[in-house]
Design a protein around this nucleic acid. Structure first.
Lengths: 119, 119
DNA sequence: TCCAGTCACTTTCAAAATGAAAGTGACTAA
DNA sequence: TTAGTCACTTTCATTTTGAAAGTGACTGGA
């Protein structure tokens, strides 16, 4: 309440941080092993670059990921989830499970595993 | 893919339906036993009435809730989750759990239980 | 040395979404 | 007759989104 949250409800506060179309997809990709701006941009959903830059900034500010320079000259950056970020795994998993069973046309878990192993 | 989803990823598809600041709060309130427009409007986060009306319409269209006239003259409506809607429980629970441990200032589970019992 | 190409963004600007507030219409109870 | 409730809808200014183009640091090849 001190820092202008909508309420003290943990669900509402989580949505204040992650409640939009893109943020959790970035977390998904980081969990799935994509780490550079380019890799994150290349996901199937084609996140616009300005939105991606904004979300990476927010997530870093919230301590959900860290940006690290892994190579000088030319400067190259990698984004990695913190423990706080990795602990969003169950949220993503619950969404994956719900979507997989309730949204027709989505990949099921076997198809996802197959894709992940094929990479 | 046929009906203009961003991708076949279940997470992305779930976010297409529920990925915003308000939708999952409506589902939360329905799970917690609020059912009329007025009750939903009265939650701590003060959802604007036009947004609430829009979200109820979408959720009904997606088969996540049903609107029922429970009284004619004057007409009164109650919104109830379908099985599909109730199966969002684990998503909400995962968010509650994450928010409760990672967002300072939120209510913890004991406090939430106490509030729910006090109602 | 020039030049095309890559990466990691940033800027621009039109379109869409949000939200505060006021309005509407059906109804009831005093 | 009138005030009040409920369930919305409308209005409109502000905010956010997203497609596209631009920027700047750098590299590798001719």
């Amino acid at each position: 309440m001190t820092d202008c949250k909508r309420s003290r409800c943990p669900v509402a506060c989580t949505l204040d941080l992650l409640g939009d179309k893109w943020t959790l997809l970035v977390v998904r990709d980081l969990l799935f092993g994509r780490h550079t701006f380019k890799e994150l941009q290349a996901s199937a959903e084609r996140i616009p670059s300005n939105i991606l830059a904004d979300r990476l900034k927010r997530l870093e500010r919230e301590g959900i990921l860290r940006k690290q320079l892994y190579q000088e000259r030319p400067p190259r950056y990698a984004y990695h989830l913190t423990d706080k970020g990795r602990s969003l795994g169950p949220v993503l998993h619950a969404m994956l499970s719900w979507g997989s069973t309730h949204v027709p046309g989505t990949l099921n878990k076997e198809e996802i595993d197959a894709l992940l192993n094929a990479e």
